[in-house]
């Protein structure tokens, strides 16, 4: 084999190795879902954030719109402070958005689910109102109104629902069951 062929084969080998590494990085790992660079941070306080991890998904309507960036403990209020990093495209979430910690599947991982509050669909409300009044609805009205109270960098989500701990639920169920059976005995 000539030295030229040798070098060509080595070139193919190195290119194949690089391509394999590239495929592992792009196709197999979560490189393309990293969104640490762009986006904004929103803080949510939970009474109980058990099971939640850094980089857990943040979803709205079942679609991932961000990730958990940081989880800390507040010494004063004894709450968990969870920092959510939302994608930069999601700047129109209303301020009364609520955050809950859910479980994917029965034993799956925990994630933060966001739900838009009652005042979310300002436009829809106005349209409904206008329809009831019999007046005409101008879509331009609602835009300026809704812009002031949206979630922005550093804003705090106040409406939260803690993660469901299975032991607590079972404990509540058992104690309720026991007290009910005691009442029945007394009767």
């Amino acid at each position: 084999m000539t030295s030229r062929m040798t070098e060509i084969w080595v070139g193919i080998f190195v290119a194949a190795g690089m391509a394999a590494l590239f495929m592992l990085a792009m196709q197999v790992s979560n490189l393309n879902t990293y969104s640490n660079a762009d986006g904004f941070d929103v803080i949510a306080r939970f009474e109980d954030a058990s099971g939640l991890k850094v980089r857990s998904p943040v979803t709205m309507a079942g679609v991932r719109i961000g990730r958990v960036k940081d989880i800390r403990f507040d010494d004063k209020t004894f709450e968990a402070i969870v920092t959510l990093r939302l994608g930069k495209g999601h700047t129109s979430l209303p301020e009364d958005t609520s955050a809950s910690i859910y479980t994917a599947g029965l034993l799956g991982e925990k994630y933060v689910g966001l739900e838009a509050g009652a005042g979310s669909n300002h436009c829809e409300d106005l349209a409904l109102e206008a329809e009831l009044d019999g007046s005409t609805f101008n879509p331009a009205d609602c835009k300026s109104n809704g812009a002031s109270n949206v979630l922005h960098n550093g804003s705090v989500i106040t409406l939260t629902q803690s993660s469901m701990v299975l032991e607590k639920l079972i404990g509540q169920f058992v104690s309720k069951f026991l007290s009910e059976s005691n009442v029945e005995k007394k009767k």
């Binding site: 592992l24 196709q27 197999v28 790992s29 979560n30 393309n32």
Partner: peptide, 10 residues
């Protein structure tokens, strides 16, 4: 993609 980390695993 959701569970394999570029730095930690690969």
């Amino acid at each position: 993609q959701a569970n394999v980390d570029l730095y930690k695993d690969i």
